[in-house]
Design a protein around this nucleic acid. Structure first.
Length: 902
RNA sequence: GGGCGGAUAGCUCAGUUGGGAGAGCAUCGGCCUUACAAGCCGGAGGUCACAGGUUCAAGCCCUGUUCCGCCUACCA
């Protein structure tokens, strides 16, 4: 493409739109099912189809995109599989709310019509989050986009269900589950959020049926007493000795219930007597099973008291609680009420308080599946990064309980189970059976429940690739290379994918699991709509550009620590994008006549700064590759930031300006002298190095900031096609140049020394001044001499003189770097007091350092026991410090003398 | 109750075999120097939470304490 100068300011909006469309049009995100390239695959954590992009998505997908773009450039055949999740309860809620606004509910419509409505809704709004993912630059293979309710994925779900059932790993039964009365469905244990709640502990007396007195029980949920079928005490509790078999009268209901003995009861808690409500408490249920107690359900699925609740029928459960307490009070049976903090479960979708509820549900027997999933991580077949999450994973897997997978909603995969109305036989099959397998009856009724959304998500890594067919996609891309996700769904999703993947694919679903942190607000609080502290990613993209945003997320993504995000941070990184843009603008201004194809580089032609920047570049390449390979995105991003800004821009570009501005000009060139390079060749070589460094830096940056990198790449001479297709840089040992780095260190130190004086002595840059550098080291002197123009230029000096140590120039300020003493002439303008203070400060600093060093060297144990090289190092340090201090003190005495002489 | 993580400059945080306390932002001083004032140059700023221990040597390893997060759990 043609070379143009860049616009003065970077305008992300237009650039982003243009390049994303180009990438899509050119099919640059496409994976190949058959390819000679090495495969690299990621499945996206499917966002809810109802969702809008939030910070979590932005972060998660930015990291995935960085990895995909990186691997693609490294020559991998990359598949980033995109898609969305049908999010059963959440989506149903959204559409139900819409109906409610029209004064309707789903029951008015009927199941079929309601589901149709949801599909319609999905058609209309379901693509939103996909569009938003494109805004941040996500390079998914969009042609392969999947949805958990698609036909193919539905078949996978059904297949898995039937197989697990046949293998005895899915069963149906009456158990206590978590019930959300608002969503009117069962929830798995994971879908319940526990929150501490300041409630009360109520002490209620249950009178004996045949004598005075009674047993006092303690409860936090008095309304459940209406369904009590026993009172239990610990068999070894002396207070209740001899009561077994006796009966008490259940207050308000006038039911006679037995006193039973059970080890479960904790004698130290409350009164040591436990009311038993098998239908509304998981432990009570178990105790009920053990003792053959009846279960009496008193709360209905809608959270209101049912017909078993006697006169309380029809009341809301919480209203009933108050009524029960009042009634008990009236009867004088409420012995005591005390404040009590306990945790209460809430529905993770709608925050409603859940009820333990006895009902017929479907479960997955997870223990056998979990064992394999544990082993896979133990053996390293799947690696969890950072490793600290491995422990959490094991912890949960080892204590896993059966998974309730049935949901009493309409939106989702309907359970492929049928019950014979005639004989009650349960039939589970892929297709609707025509007759009962037991009695040949034809009256078969399908289950109305649907499956937990996470059931289908658990199959995502292989269902999206076409399973149960043995597709080429699966052959090429399963197991996936890495899963990138937040720890909040480690159990919900990651663990379950592990179980299902191992069971059905006989191999782990991913080699690596990279667990990233959560994005929080600037104060570290979780972002939430109710707190009003959310930052909308789309607003950020509009305001600062997708690249600045992406780079911010990458730069802050330190392992094991949450990201505290504020607009200020993003603004800061926008400055970086702007810096890069301007550096490129500058470079392109000087590369318009450069033709890389025509240029032949002769290593001999490289100047010292050329060698230095190439050596440094090699270091960055190494840092970026290592960072990305280890999922240390922040390391990689920060290395690039440091290099671009503080090495390329601050030093290299400044150093080469004279050459670029005076291509054939009269500038004395040390390299010309040294290597007999003609000035025109020096110019060409400089162009070449500048071009190479920019070219390579852009390729390093592309995974992080794809848009601006592509835009500059496009304008850079000698580049063809998209930067996406360019090769990712690799380290080149021949570029490592210790010698050049050391030499530059000295020169830069001298420059910094001079600038330091200028700054501290308040000498404006416009004032051109002379400097003298004295050094006992011949080589150092030669180097400075050779590069005098660079120093003169960078420090805006009139002239610099390099000599062996000798007479100190009068009326000058001093700085010391290495064994160089720098004299900065201040004839006529020197402020002796200021200089004296400056020198004293320097001496003070050194003294402080020397203190520590001397302490070490006077410690015999240190000299005896520390490795020789360490001792040597400290000795050298002392020597250096002493010399430096001497120089400063010499100058100090000179200055004080002049100062006191007036 | 169990488990995990954190405490380093004013703020946000790096600091990977124990031997030089660092960055970004903010702040202060000086600069319109021909890519960039969204910039350039320079400065200041820290008992590495506390108390012990191991070691010649500890931000780093060990023990304990305090404070703050998070995950997990059925004591009614």
């Amino acid at each position: 493409m043609s070379t143009h100068l860049l616009k003065k300011g970077y305008e992300p909006k237009e650039v982003e739109r243009r390049w994303y469309a180009y990438w899509e049009k050119e099919g640059l995100f496409s994976a190949e099912d058959i390819s000679g390239k090495r495969p690299f695959s990621i499945v996206i954590p499917p966002p809810n189809v109802t969702g809008v992009l939030h910070m979590g998505h932005a972060h998660n997908n930015t990291l995935q995109d960085i990895l995909c773009r990186y691997r693609r450039m490294q020559g991998y055949n990359v598949l980033w599989m995109p898609g969305t999740d049908h999010a059963g309860i959440a989506t149903q809620n959204v559409v139900e709310n819409e109906l409610a606004r029209q004064g309707k509910d789903r029951h008015n419509l009927g199941r079929e019509e309601f589901v149709k409505r949801i599909w319609q809704w999905r058609e209309e709004y379901g693509g939103l989050i996909i569009k938003q993912l494109k805004r941040i630059g996500a390079s998914c293979d969009w042609d392969r986009e999947r949805f958990t309710m698609d036909e193919g994925l539905s078949r996978a779900v059904k297949t898995v269900f039937v197989k697990l059932y046949e293998q005895g790993l899915i069963y149906r039964g009456d158990y206590i589950i978590n019930w959300c009365p608002r969503c009117q469905t069962a929830l798995s244990d994971l879908e319940v959020d526990h929150e501490d709640h300041n409630g009360h502990l109520y002490y209620v007396r249950y009178p004996f049926e045949d004598e005075e007195g009674g047993v006092v029980v303690a409860t936090t949920r008095p309304e459940t007493m209406l369904g009590d079928t026993a009172v239990a005490v610990n068999p070894s509790d002396d207070r209740y000795r001899g009561l077994e078999g006796k009966r008490v009268i259940l207050p308000l209901m006038n039911r006679r219930i037995p006193i039973i003995l059970d080890e479960y009861v904790d004698a130290r808690f409350g009164t040591g007597a436990l009311k038993i409500t098998p239908a509304h408490d998981p432990h009570d249920f178990e105790i009920g099973e053990r003792h053959g107690l009846a279960s009496v359900k008193v709360i209905g699925g809608d959270g209101h008291m049912n017909e078993q609740a006697g006169r309380f029928q029809g009341q809301d459960r919480f209203e009933c609680r108050e009524e029960v307490l009042e009634a008990l009070g009236e009867e004088g049976l409420l012995e005591n009420t005390e404040p009590y903090q306990h945790s209460v479960g809430h529905c993770y979708r709608c925050r409603t308080t859940v009820d333990p509820y006895l009902s017929k549900q479907w479960f997955v027997k997870v223990k056998p599946l979990a064992e394999k999933a544990i082993a896979a991580v133990e053996t390293g077949d799947t690696r969890i990064v950072p490793d600290t999450w491995t422990k959490t994973y094991f912890e949960w897997m080892n204590n896993i309980k059966d998974w309730c997978i049935s949901r009493q909603i309409w939106w989702g995969h309907r359970i492929p189970g049928w019950t014979c109305e005639h004989c009650g036989e349960l039939i589970v099959a892929m297709d609707p059976p025509t007759e009962c397998s037991a009695c040949k009856g034809s009256a078969l009724v399908q289950e109305t429940d649907v499956l937990d959304t996470w059931f289908s998500s658990a199959l995502w890594p292989f269902s999206t690739m076409g399973w149960p067919e043995g597709t080429q996609t699966l052959k090429t891309f399963y197991p996936t290379s890495v899963l990138v996700t937040g720890f909040d769904i480690l159990f919900f999703w990651v663990a379950r994918m592990m179980m299902m993947g191992l069971h059905f694919m006989k191999d782990v679903p991913f080699r690596d699991v990279y667990i990233h942190a959560l994005v929080r607000d600037a104060e570290g609080k979780k972002m939430s709509k109710s707190k009003g502290n959310v930052i909308d990613p789309l607003y950020v993209i509009d305001e600062y550009g997708a690249d600045a945003f992406r780079f911010t997320l990458a730069a802050l993504a330190a392992q094991g620590r949450d990201i505290k995000l504020s607009e200020d941070r993003i603004e800061g990184y926008r400055h970086f994008i702007n810096k890069l843009w301007n550096a490129a603008r500058f470079s392109l201004m000087h590369l318009s006549d450069f033709e890389p194809d025509q240029f032949r580089q002769d290593a001999q032609d490289l100047s010292l700064p050329d060698r230095w920047i190439l050596s440094r570049l090699n270091g960055v390449v190494d840092n970026v590759i290592n960072g990305l390979d280890q999922y240390k995105f922040n390391d990689a991003a920060n290395a690039l930031y440091q290099f671009v800004w503080h090495e390329l821009c601050d030093w290299y570009l400044e150093i080469i300006k004279p050459v670029l501005y005076e291509p054939s000009g009269p500038i004395a060139d040390p390299d010309k002298e040294a290597h007999k390079v003609p000035q025109s060749a020096r110019y060409k070589t400089t162009q070449f190095v500048l071009w190479s460094v920019l070219n390579e830096t852009l390729r390093l940056l592309h995974p992080f900031i794809p848009f601006v990198a592509e835009e500059i790449w496009d304008k850079l001479p000698g580049t063809e096609g998209s930067i996406m297709q360019a090769e990712f840089p690799s380290t080149d040992k021949t570029r490592d140049d210790r010698e050049a780095e050391d030499a530059m260190k000295l020169l830069m130190g001298v420059v910094s020394g001079i600038r330091n004086i200028r700054g501290e002595m308040n000498v404006p840059p416009s004032l051109s001044v002379e400097a003298v550098v004295q050094s006992p080291d011949k080589g150092g002197r030669a180097l400075i001499e050779q590069r005098r123009d660079m120093i003169v230029n960078l420090c805006r000096l009139k002239n610099i003189e390099v000599t062996a140590p000798g007479k100190r120039p009068a009326s000058s300020a001093t700085s010391v770097f290495g064994n160089c003493t720098i004299f900065f002439s201040l004839k006529g303008i020197i402020d002796f007091e200021l200089e004296q203070g400056r020198l004293e400060k320097g001496v003070g600093k050194i003294n402080k350092e020397l203190e520590g060093v001397n302490k070490k060297l006077s410690n015999e144990d240190f000299l005896l026991k520390a490795p020789e090289e360490v001792v040597q190092k400290v000795r050298e340090k002392r020597e250096k410090l002493v010399k430096k201090r001497q120089k400063l003190q010499d100058q100090l005495s000179t200055v004080s003398q002049i100062s006191s002489d007036g």
